[in-house]
Design a protein around this nucleic acid. Structure first.
Lengths: 139, 139
DNA sequence: GTCTTATCGGGAATCATTTTCATTATTGCA
DNA sequence: TGCAATAATGAAAATGATTCCCGATAAGAC
């Protein structure tokens, strides 16, 4: 249940598949679903299985290399977000194309902690995502 | 895609099942899953189908009577939150038992709108949820 | 009471994600 | 460099929440 655990890279083998998934994510600054990444890789001739895509995406999250956003329809989307040392941040996401901008809101962080403390909640954690239509999709 | 659409109650028949679902939700101030509500109702002898539970929960959301929170594991949880005229608010949720406290953060609202505007995003929307362990569950 | 039709509900169908497990490929080490 | 130990892979099956289908049921109108 430990939260906020910093980087603690577990021994990990270097494989083509792992690199391919990372590349696919790195190629776009949008949040993408596992199914989407899988389809893209297969379309580009990559030899990889769906399970493997899921596995690597989860690994990136565990290692703090990627962020996840759970869309309202239940699908999980991933995006590389610097290494684990990167500051805590949130996202402004286009609900149409998934393009995301990293944003910070120091005030929000402190506010969240304060509110939680006032109600006696511990081991606090929060999610803040702003959705909208990017200029491109607004057309 | 119209957001923030205020109450526009469609003609709706009064049924035992609908009342039962609402009662089940009203009995607790926690976010509960459809499966959970269904199990509770059946356990208490209520004659109702799973589809019906889903249907009513969705209706409550559409009518602005309930709020939804999509848990990281993909499950959707519901909670009655006043009528549609109730002010926009967020939640401080216990990730263990689901107990929730309604909270407000006017500053967050304006911040979100400003950030979105700065990046040219329109039709903005946001989700802010604070998770933690309530005093009861911290034990 | 009777008719019209919204609502039910059980089961099949979806769909994303996870698990299983036999096969394959990396890495550490002799 | 060669090889054993074992992490990684992937195809198929399993899971689990949610939705769809459609004949049966019941609420509201007259």
């Amino acid at each position: 249940m430990a939260l906020m655990a910093p980087t603690q890279q577990v021994k990990r083998r270097a494989t083509n598949q792992g690199a391919a998934v990372k590349e696919a994510l790195a190629a776009e600054d949008t949040f993408r679903s596992a199914q989407d990444v899988y389809a893209t890789l297969r379309a580009s001739g990559e030899k990889i299985g769906l399970s493997t895509v899921y596995r690597h995406l989860q690994i990136f999250v565990d290692d703090g290399l990627a962020d996840v956003i759970h869309k309202p329809d239940g699908e999980s989307t991933y995006r590389l977000c610097g290494d684990a040392s990167t500051t805590h941040h949130h996202h402004l996401v286009c609900r149409q194309c998934g393009k995301a901008v990293e944003i910070e809101g120091p005030a929000v962080e402190t506010w969240a902690d304060k509110v939680a403390a006032q109600h006696g909640f511990s081991d606090v954690n929060h999610t803040v995502e702003i959705f909208g239509l990017c200029t491109a999709c607004a057309a």
